[in-house]
């Protein structure tokens, strides 16, 4: 403690501890109480069978885990989560990455204009995004299908089609999150020293080579952050259109792990299985974070 080490009366020493901890206490208390304690609590619940109403949860050991790992619904939700995530990585990592590269290194005029408009959808509620797209996707009169018919293309019933429901819902989330990721990536990209790129230009490197060989390695820290957030937040975000528009349907074709956990908790009241599924997702995300750390340590260039 900087202040406490100074020679002085005992009062100053106590005060030296009191002030910093007093500053940290409110934030730490809320995070401990509503983020970290529930984490432990969920872990505990996953070993019990309980319906949220009966007075005593019943200890069942690993039964919940074994049962969901044997259930078809869980694996459906698992593979769907993967599918959502892959689409979101393309639309919310690759696409904004390239867009931000174009804006920061190939186009110099109108930066404020582009930034302001591309960020705009990210200030809207996912609930708003969901209802807008519910209309856009309307099979009979919705603008998307009206346009497709005008062009003589097939016009599928997006949200009730087994084949299209996941891409259709992923696009809703992607539309809402694109601008945020774009701005975060842009922040990383503008920090790349221009001299490096000009030197490469003199060597007649193509724009793609400059992006892949120079800009991408120099901004990989930012990109990894966006990647991890897309995976973790993405599966949570996509819950909103699932819950509002399809309720997991048609016939569970659009469920994901977050929706699976929600249903088992609040529709089926099987907290043990829901908790077990939550712990499994946490383990998967934890593995991803660990991987990110490993990748970061292995030769990712840190900005600053």
């Amino acid at each position: 403690m900087k202040i406490a080490r100074e020679p002085g009366p005992k009062f100053a020493a106590i005060k030296g501890y009191l002030v910093p901890w007093g500053c940290l206490a409110p934030a730490l208390a809320f995070l401990a109480l509503f983020t970290f304690w529930p984490l432990v609590s969920t872990l505990k619940l996953s070993f019990y069978q309980w319906n949220m109403v009966s007075p005593t949860p019943k200890w069942v050991g690993l039964t919940n885990y074994l049962e969901i790992l044997r259930s078809r619904e869980f694996w459906l939700a698992f593979w769907h989560t993967l599918e959502y995530t892959l689409i979101l990585l393309a639309l919310n990592l690759a696409l904004p990455y390239i867009t931000a590269y174009i804006l920061s290194h190939l186009v110099f005029k109108g930066q404020n204009f582009y930034r302001a408009l591309i960020f705009l959808p990210s200030v809207l509620s996912l609930a708003v995004a969901a209802v807008i797209f519910l209309w856009l996707y309307n099979p009979l009169a919705g603008p998307v299908n009206a346009l497709l018919r005008l062009l003589g293309l097939p016009a599928p019933p997006w949200l009730s089609s087994y084949r299209w429901v996941i891409p259709a819902l992923a696009v809703i989330t992607a539309w809402k999150s694109f601008g945020y990721n774009f701005i975060v990536l842009l922040a990383g990209l503008v920090a790349v020293p221009l001299e490096l790129i000009e030197a490469a230009r003199l060597e007649k490197a193509s724009n793609w080579q400059i992006f892949w060989r120079i800009v991408r390695p120099l901004t990989s820290g930012t990109a990894l952050y966006v990647l991890v957030m897309t995976v973790i937040i993405g599966s949570q975000y996509v819950f909103v259109p699932i819950q509002m528009l399809t309720n997991g349907g048609p016939d569970q074709a659009s469920t994901n792990l977050v929706f699976f956990i929600y249903q088992y908790t609040f529709n089926f009241f099987q907290t043990g299985k829901a908790a077990a599924a939550a712990v499994i997702t946490l383990i998967i995300f934890g593995g991803l974070l660990f991987l990110q750390k490993r990748v970061l340590e292995k030769g990712v260039y840190y900005e600053n």
Binding site: A27, L31, L39, M52, I232, I261, T265, A274, L282
Partner: peptide, 23 residues
């Protein structure tokens, strides 16, 4: 302690929602 705070960003909502709801 600071990194522990940051870690909370990565705790998925699904893991905390049930105990928080019960509370």
């Amino acid at each position: 302690l600071f990194y522990l705070c940051l870690l909370s960003i990565f705790v998925p909502f699904t893991v905390t929602m049930m105990p928080n709801y019960l509370f």
